[in-house]
Simulated scan of single mutants.
Amino acid sequence: MTNEISNKKDLSPEQLEELLNALKTRFEKNIQRHEGIEWAEVQAKLEANPEKLWSLNEMERTGGEPDVVGHDKETGEYIFYDCSAESPKGRRSVCYDREALESRKQHKPENSAVNMAAEMGIELLSEEQYRNLQKLGIFDKKSSSWVQTPSDIRKLGGAIFCDWRYGHVFVYHNGADSYYAARGFRGALRV
């Protein structure tokens, strides 16, 4: 897996079949994440939204292991989060956003979390979404994930990230321009 985002936003029939099989298998193995939701309904929604399938493929390709975590009854959308045990490997060693990336004088990372998410057509999880994800399993026991940072923190040069340690979700701060091999980001997608 690479950090490069594919410029081609269409999936071949083989890629589509492989993605749908991976999503269905994960869906069936993790029913506790989406009780009461039927795969056939999710698949029909996915097949009607090819641009969302491309985004899900990017989530999968970069190691996110996306899965359904909810259904918005008002909009009819299914909600996918990255559910990989650790922060997705194909999205690590990135600073928080483009401004942070451009502010680094030396040893710049290849990309930023906010930019990669935008290129993939997804959003970084918010702190609340991250906490909700942790109710569905235990994630980031060895890694950490950038989350959406409030503008007042970002204006001062900081950004926030979360992880799971000692049986709790911890929220930390760091300079937005920092990056670590064990820190990436998790995304959300509504279909």
Rank of each mutant, 00 (worst) to 15 (best):
K45D: 15
I31K: 12
T62D: 07
C95H: 05
E41C: 04
I79F: 08
H71G: 00
K45E: 14
K29E: 09
N21P: 00
E65L: 15
P66G: 11
L133H: 08
Y78T: 13
E38I: 10
E65G: 10
G36K: 11
R131Q: 14
F27C: 12
A118S: 08
D72M: 02
Y130V: 04
Q129V: 03
W54K: 10
F80P: 05
H107R: 15
A22G: 06
V69T: 04
S93V: 01
E51I: 02
K105Y: 04
A85L: 10
N30A: 08
E86F: 05
E86L: 08
D67Q: 12
P109R: 03
E86M: 11
N30H: 07
I122L: 09
N30Q: 05
A117Q: 04
V69D: 04
K52C: 01
E110H: 13
S87Y: 13
S112F: 07
H34F: 03
Y96I: 03
I31R: 09
E99L: 09
K105L: 01
D82S: 09
N132L: 14
A40K: 12
S87C: 07
R104P: 08
L101R: 09
Y81K: 06
L101Q: 15
E77C: 07
I31H: 01
N49D: 06
E47C: 11
A40F: 10
G63H: 06
P109C: 06
E74F: 01
S103T: 12
H34I: 01
A44G: 05
M59F: 12
E51S: 12
I31V: 10
R91T: 10
K29L: 09
V69E: 03
E35Y: 10
V69N: 06
H34S: 13
T75L: 05
P66R: 14
N30R: 10
A48T: 06
L23A: 12
A40I: 12
K108E: 00
P50G: 04
M120G: 11
L56P: 05
P66D: 13
E123R: 12
S84K: 11
I79M: 08
L125R: 12
E110A: 11
Q43R: 15
R33Y: 01
N57F: 14
N21V: 11
N21G: 04
A85P: 05
M116Q: 15
F27S: 12
E102N: 14
A100R: 08
S93C: 01
E65D: 15
L136Q: 14
Q129P: 02
Q32T: 13
Q43T: 09
R26C: 00
L133A: 13
N21T: 14
H34K: 02
E60H: 14
P88Y: 10
L46Q: 07
L46F: 14
G36I: 08
P88N: 14
A117P: 00
E102Q: 15
Y81C: 11
A85Y: 14
I79R: 13
R98C: 00
L20A: 09
E99Q: 09
P50I: 06
K135R: 05
R61A: 15
I79V: 15
K135E: 09
A44D: 14
Y78W: 12
K108N: 00
T75S: 13
S55C: 13
E51G: 00
P66N: 11
I37Y: 07
G121C: 09
S87F: 10
P66T: 09
K105N: 02
